[in-house]
Write a protein that binds this DNA or RNA. Structure first.
Lengths: 347, 347
DNA sequence: TTGTAAGCGTTATCAT
DNA sequence: ATGATAACGCTTACAA
């Protein structure tokens, strides 16, 4: 129904061979000026565009890369994608975005489709459900270019780009401690994710350095990234219902911080008077949401850029790469002035 | 470097012809059970995947559709994309997302690339800069399936899906009026965009129905969707610097509402005491940001779904379609209780 | 039941 | 300077 013009059409119309037309179009020198002009003008007039599919088939590359993330409705990821696009665009690559919605199965389906040769490389941040990497291993062993960012795995040896989650978590927790909080809960993503592990370690270290005992009842995981009924809400409620109720919550992750605010608001819990809040977030709004909210911001855009540069390097390298980099970018902590004063309760 | 297995490889290994292998793989009946078993098992073992590029070339379709939006870091669009994906996934289509970043040129580049046959159809929400549609016209005239949503144009006759921007704007404005505000400014997107026009009309109508004179000094456009330096900030400042300062702002669009909050906060302007705020937004946070904030929410997910259904209908229709639908979905207004009481100033 | 060959759009190689 | 041909991976008449 929609029949675009091809080289063959041009050749027929002009009484030339397809190869001549092809050469004229790509500006080959071994062609007479007049034939070239003829062809180019005809192509122009009929708005000829080379068929990228045919090109991909021929060149065995698509000049496109795919990003696999859990959700684009997450400030961290949408910012990372902007970084990815900025580099890809400059290097002549198209970017295909696909969402796993935190589902292992969906992640597999997407990766299968994309990797089976419609993209030249993969930029992956693992879904919350994923704890099995055979699929990536297969691809990687065959030499298919993959770069992990943010939620990575140690089981695959390739380039990786992460934020310094340990330090970020350490810093927020310390800020809460400095502000006078002692019963600090930690609401985080699935326990096995790299980001969860690193953040938990940072949190524990900050407690330890300040002689605050670690209480594992204070750690709640949202294993499905909040994709399942009211996972976050339940987690928060169960924290608030503890006999020894926490006086602060450190939330790991943009979406968790956002839901935390939403749920606490809905429950009419005063922040920070009843429970203080601090956490990872890249939301442009979070900073100004509540006075007293300390926020760790990930260098999302830069992470996207860096990961893309590494991926393209991988794609364009002639021989198999054996040396892989792991790049750790620093997070930034924004402490709101007012968070320093905790209302003296039993002092 | 990464050499996936092909039908040809299987044929050679098994001493069969490629056509036999192809048939066995797609479960054709005209094949002996044992050959089939042999082929299927071999394919399984070596993890054969058909090359989607070759398939596209053959079938002259890619089973993928593209979405062209200005920004995915916009709650309305990320939600709409989720709606798009949900339908596409069920119908066996892949979704390619591309961002124009409100640039006409970038929009053109994306559309050119995508439409030149790597996708079967286009879902478009126009960039703020776009006021020239020849490019879409060309595609559309050739029968290339396009569905516009949200930011549409009358110049192209095809399916369209929009929110009832007029009514939404009317309702928010009326809510502000009912809450006692009389000097209501309107901060909105580029003047020529369909959404801007409709929202302006709704705003004007609400003023008119309540005998409030329209003041064009109170209308500010952000022509670049805030992609350019501090466009929004300048607009807001100039509103606040008017001799007859507005007592409320109605912001059109998710991103504008978000920046409005951010900028007012930064300028230390009290909301709603100094200036009340109400506007379009799909942010999960906006509702709880400030007491007294009335929000119009667009049915983003449903719009995405509807647009995708229409697009797939277009793609899969045998003959040229001549009857086009324009579907208008209702917005929802969330009024916060506290917004009803305006502090009595000179009463 | 299986194989042969053509074709999808393009480019590279080898003639001419 | 130009043309014929093969190849990229796959499906599908058409033959056998």
């Amino acid at each position: 129904m929609y029949e675009p013009i091809t080289i063959k059409d041009i050749a027929k119309a002009l009484g030339l061979s397809t190869s001549t037309v092809s050469r004229a179009l790509r500006g080959s020198y071994e062609i007479s000026a007049e034939t070239k002009k003829l062809v180019v003008e005809y192509a122009e007039q009929f708005n000829y565009r080379p068929n990228p599919i045919a090109l991909s088939l021929k060149e065995r590359r698509s000049r496109s890369i795919a990003v696999v993330v859990c959700e684009i409705a997450n400030n961290y990821f949408s910012q990372a994608i902007n970084g990815i696009e900025s580099v890809a665009y400059n290097r002549g690559y198209h970017v295909i975005i696909s969402q796993s919605h935190e589902s292992y199965e969906r992640e597999i389906v997407n990766v299968e489709h994309l990797a089976s040769r419609s993209v030249d490389g993969l930029l992956v941040s693992l879904s919350a459900e994923t704890n099995q990497f055979d699929h990536y291993k297969n691809l990687h062993e065959k030499g298919f270019p993959i770069v992990f960012f943010d939620r990575i795995t140690d089981e695959i040896e390739t380039h990786k780009v992460v934020a310094d989650n340990y330090q970020g978590a350490y810093n927020v927790t310390k800020h809460l401690i400095n502000a006078g909080y002692k019963k600090i809960a930690h609401l985080t993503s699935a326990a096995h994710l790299s980001i969860s592990i690193e953040r938990l370690e940072g949190y524990k270290a900050a407690l330890r350095d300040n002689k605050i005992p670690f209480n594992d009842k204070y750690v709640k995981n949202c294993n499905h990234g909040g994709m399942i009924y009211n996972e976050q809400e339940d987690a928060i409620k169960s924290l608030l219902n503890l006999k020894d109720k926490p006086d602060a919550i450190f939330s790991g992750g943009d979406k968790l911080t956002v839901s935390c605010l939403a749920v606490l608001n809905e429950l009419k819990v005063k922040v920070p008077d009843e429970v203080a809040l601090a956490g990872f977030s890249n939301s442009p709004l979070v900073e100004l949401m509540k006075p007293g909210l300390t926020v760790v911001k990930q260098p999302a855009f830069e992470m996207g850029q860096t990961a893309t540069e590494l991926l393209i390097k991988l794609i364009e390298s002639k021989r198999p790469v054996t040396e892989f980099e792991k790049i750790v970018l620093q997070t930034e902590v924004f402490e709101r002035e007012s968070s320093a004063k905790k209302k003296p309760k039993k002092k």
